[in-house]
Simulated scan of single mutants.
Amino acid sequence: MRICTITVRAGSKGVPGKNLRVVAGRPLFGHSVAQAAATGLFDEVVVSSDSEEILELAPTFGATGVVRRPAEMATDTAGKVPAIAHAVRTTEERTGRHFDTCVDLDATSPLRTLDDIRAAVAMFEDSRAESLITGTEARRNPYFNLVEEQRDGTVAVSKQPDDAVLRRQDAPRCFDMNGSIYVWRRQALLEDQVVFFPSTILYEMPPERSTDVDSEFDFRIVEWLMEQRSDR
Score class of each variant (00 low, 15 high):
Pro16Gly: 04
Pro16Phe: 03
Gly17Pro: 15
Gly17Lys: 14
Lys18Asn: 09
Lys18Cys: 01
Lys18Glu: 06
Leu20Met: 12
Leu20Ser: 08
Arg21Thr: 11
Val22Phe: 07
Val22Cys: 05
Val23Pro: 11
Val23Asp: 01
Val23His: 04
Val23Tyr: 06
Gly25Gln: 14
Gly25Glu: 06
Arg26Gly: 01
Pro27Lys: 05
Pro27Ile: 09
Val33Arg: 02
Gln35Glu: 14
Ala38Phe: 02
Phe42Pro: 01
Glu44Gln: 08
Ser48Asp: 02
Ser48Ala: 15
Ser48Leu: 09
Ser49Pro: 14
Ser49Arg: 10
Asp50Pro: 00
Ile54Asn: 00
Leu55Asn: 02
Leu55Pro: 08
Glu56Ala: 09
Glu56Leu: 12
Ala58Glu: 04
Ala58Leu: 13
Ala58Lys: 12
Ala58Gln: 04
Pro59Phe: 03
Thr60Ile: 14
Phe61Glu: 07
Gly62Pro: 15
Ala63Asp: 00
Gly65Asn: 08
Gly65Val: 03
Val66Asn: 15
Val66Lys: 03
Arg68Gln: 10
Arg69Ile: 13
Arg69Ser: 00
Pro70His: 09
Glu72Cys: 05
Glu72Trp: 05
Ala74Pro: 15
Thr75Leu: 00
Thr77Val: 13
Thr77Asp: 14
Ala78Glu: 15
Ala78Leu: 03
Gly79Val: 05
Lys80Glu: 00
Pro82Gly: 01
Ile84Asp: 02
Ala85Ser: 07
His86Tyr: 11
Arg89Asp: 02
Arg89Lys: 13
Arg89Val: 04
Thr91Pro: 07
Thr95Val: 09
Arg97Ala: 15
Arg97Asn: 11
His98Glu: 14
Thr101Tyr: 01
Asp104Thr: 08
Leu105Ser: 03
Leu105Ala: 09
Leu105Tyr: 13
Leu105Phe: 02
Asp106Glu: 07
Ala107Arg: 00
Thr108Ile: 11
Thr108Leu: 08
Ser109Pro: 12
Ser109Gln: 13
Pro110Thr: 03
Thr113Cys: 12
Thr113Arg: 07
Leu114His: 11
Leu114Glu: 11
Asp116Gln: 02
Asp116Trp: 00
Ile117Met: 04
Arg118Tyr: 12
Arg118Asp: 10
Ala119Trp: 10
Met123Asp: 09
Phe124Cys: 01
Glu125Tyr: 06
Asp126Pro: 10
Arg128Phe: 05
Arg128His: 07
Ala129Phe: 04
Glu130Asn: 00
Glu130Val: 06
Thr134Ala: 12
Gly135Pro: 12
Thr136Ile: 05
Ala138Arg: 07
Arg140His: 07
Arg140Gln: 09
Pro142Leu: 10
Tyr143Thr: 10
Phe144Trp: 10
Phe144Glu: 00
Leu146Phe: 14
Val147Tyr: 02
Arg151Gly: 08
Arg151Thr: 11
Gly153Thr: 12
